Simulated scan of single mutants.
Amino acid sequence: MGLIHVCLNVTDAEESVQFYTEQLGFEESWSFESGDTINRYVTDDDGVEIQLSDTSGVDEVDAGTAWDHLALSVESVDDAFERIDHFGTVQEPQDQPAAGARTAFIEDPDGHVVELVEPLEE
């Protein structure tokens, strides 16, 4: 497994992208939309990404809700989902065509959400 990205809930994706790129030296890498949510990614020199997730109608992010999830790459989402002794299921394995991946979301012992990610075959 390897770290892919950390997802932060933000109230203004454009402002957040500008902060991470102009102030911290990240580069914007890609984006996709899912329902009412715009997801924009910034990448550091080592390829680790921060996902900036802006949901329409959410005007304030409180402490405790700003951090969304940690994404880890796996060879097989289905195998990892069955093998890992997780502490809750947020989303069972399913394809996410807009993101080009098969994903599942589980909880760690403290309730932090961990996303398991496997690229979809093209």
Rank of each mutant, 00 (worst) to 15 (best):
V17W: 10
H86K: 05
H112L: 13
G47L: 07
T65S: 13
L8I: 14
E15P: 02
D12A: 06
V10R: 08
E28G: 01
I106V: 12
G88N: 07
A80R: 03
V58N: 04
R40C: 03
T11V: 06
A13I: 00
F19G: 00
V74D: 02
A104I: 08
V114F: 14
Y20H: 06
A101F: 08
L70A: 04
D108H: 13
S56L: 09
D95A: 15
L8P: 12
T55V: 10
L24R: 02
S34G: 03
V117M: 09
V74C: 10
S29T: 15
E28N: 04
W30Q: 11
D59E: 15
T65D: 07
A99L: 12
G47C: 05
Y20W: 15
L72R: 04
R102V: 08
E28R: 13
Y20L: 04
D46C: 10
G64I: 02
V6M: 07
E107T: 07
E115G: 12
P119T: 11
E49D: 15
E49N: 07
D36Q: 05
L8H: 15
S31H: 10
V58Y: 01
I50Y: 08
Y41T: 00
E60V: 11
F81K: 03
V17Y: 11
V48L: 01
T55R: 15
D12W: 01
V117N: 08
L70T: 15
S16E: 14
V61R: 04
